[in-house]
Nucleic acid binder design. Structure first.
Lengths: 248, 248
DNA sequence: AGATGGATAATTGCATGCAATCACATATTC
DNA sequence: GAATATGTGATTGCATGCAATTATCCATCT
């Protein structure tokens, strides 16, 4: 998933800096001082600088015209767009999967993942760990579709998106798990998964694409719920980056 | 269009390095030596390094596991995917435009651009300069749709795509201009433009998206033509990066 | 002759120094 | 008292030095 398998220092800086921002230790609009980060991370300015450039590409920070960077802020519209974008890209990936003949092994892997999700969703009650497992499996499912699209260009594009907060497939699952209708949503999501695989196996590219897109609307729905409740918002990773629409 | 309006040195390195690669002065698979670039560009290693990181994000170079970078090679499938991706993203942008009520001024600007393209395409004969103008206007039209989508997320995403070779809207126009059916293609493209604006004005998001997508298929068609003829290929910017499918 | 090993040269990743720029606070003037 | 000017401290962008890793070439061995 990480596109720089290269060794440490710069990579370390990227990961830790991302954590710092997503955990809200750097607030939106706040300038990110190189030296301050150097102190916190214990690496020199060069990798920090590299990391900042990278995070700018990812969209977590904006660069000031005067030089330096600030933590970016995300509006509700931004998040919706990010989700839509992921939907569109995953839609392309699903279409590609349906257009080409997946190998037996590939199909088996997808079906295996689908099966695991099935048995998980159907448990009588879901623990916290179960939800973690769900996120893991869900990520794997989405990752498989992208990988099996057999398109490095699409793959790269999606992987870049996934670095943005709130665009991961499982971004809202943990908070959603606290909703009363949580179970229902999982059923629907899993039905989407099943239908997508069905479309791929039946060589129905248009349907596969459409379903993948529609699937992403679940995230959008969850977003709306989360944004309405301060309690849920607190449990959302990266929530400190969200600018709530002030209704005056 | 350039997202780092910051002043020189690193920016210079990015631009010049991109030129070097696109002009074929660095061949695909070839390692890009930092010091060699330092000599050629007259800037120190630091900005060169920054530029390489950026070009990697853009997809022009790949980073070696051992360290350093190589010029990337593009297969026909890669280019098709890039074109499709642009189509999908511009489709989203067009949809967004149709979903919201564009201001009078915005609409006027789009119509103005459309009108300019119209009068250009309808000239009895097209000179080389006319084709340059067409590319400029065409870029402007596509840029307007993206800008008026009013979505920074989508906008950023597309701008990043446009750094990849062969994904610019006008990438194939210059070579296409040498084809006998060139005129016909321009008419069709312009009809797409017209229909997209029509859909936007009529608040038909689905239709706007579909048309924008279909519009990108023209580039795909042009690609196929170009790839079949060595003569056309030579006139394509960045053609040195293409790995032709060897049919043995 | 081909393959394996080792030494040397080259290249990269990182840290740091330096100069230029920018931000901020104080002082000054209207 | 408010706004502008000025000076100082902080911060960034760039260049370069150093160490470690990697690639290359040649000699040696099977």
């Amino acid at each position: 998933m990480e596109e720089t398998p290269r060794n440490s220092q710069t990579t370390r800086a990227i990961l830790q800096l991302r954590e710092l921002i997503l955990n809200g230790e750097l607030k939106p609009g706040e300038r990110v001082p190189e030296l301050g980060i150097v102190e916190r991370l214990g690496v020199s300015r060069t990798p920090v600088r590299l990391a900042l450039a990278r995070l700018q590409e990812e969209g977590l920070v904006d660069c000031l015209s005067t030089g330096g960077f600030v933590v970016r802020e995300f509006s509700e519209a931004d998040i919706i767009d990010a989700i839509d974008l992921r939907g569109a890209l995953e839609g392309m990936a699903a279409r590609r999967c349906a257009e080409r003949r997946l190998s037996r092994a590939d199909l088996a892997e997808v079906r295996d993942c689908l099966g695991s999700l099935d048995s998980l969703v159907r448990r009588p009650a879901l623990s916290m760990d179960d939800f973690s497992d769900y996120i893991r499996l869900n990520d794997r499912f989405h990752g498989l579709l992208v990988e099996l699209s057999n398109s490095p260009v699409i793959q790269r594009s999606i992987e870049r998106m996934l670095h943005m907060p709130f665009s991961q497939p499982g971004a809202f699952v943990l908070v959603q798990s606290e909703l009363p209708e949580s179970r229902e949503i999982l059923f629907i999501a899993q039905d989407h998964h099943r239908s997508i695989v069905e479309a791929i196996e039946a060589f129905e590219p248009g349907r596969a694409e459409m379903l993948a897109r529609e699937h992403s609307r679940l995230a959008r729905r969850n977003l709306q719920v989360v944004l309405k409740s301060q309690r849920h918002l607190q449990r959302l990773r990266g929530s400190s980056l969200i600018r709530l629409a002030e209704d005056a």
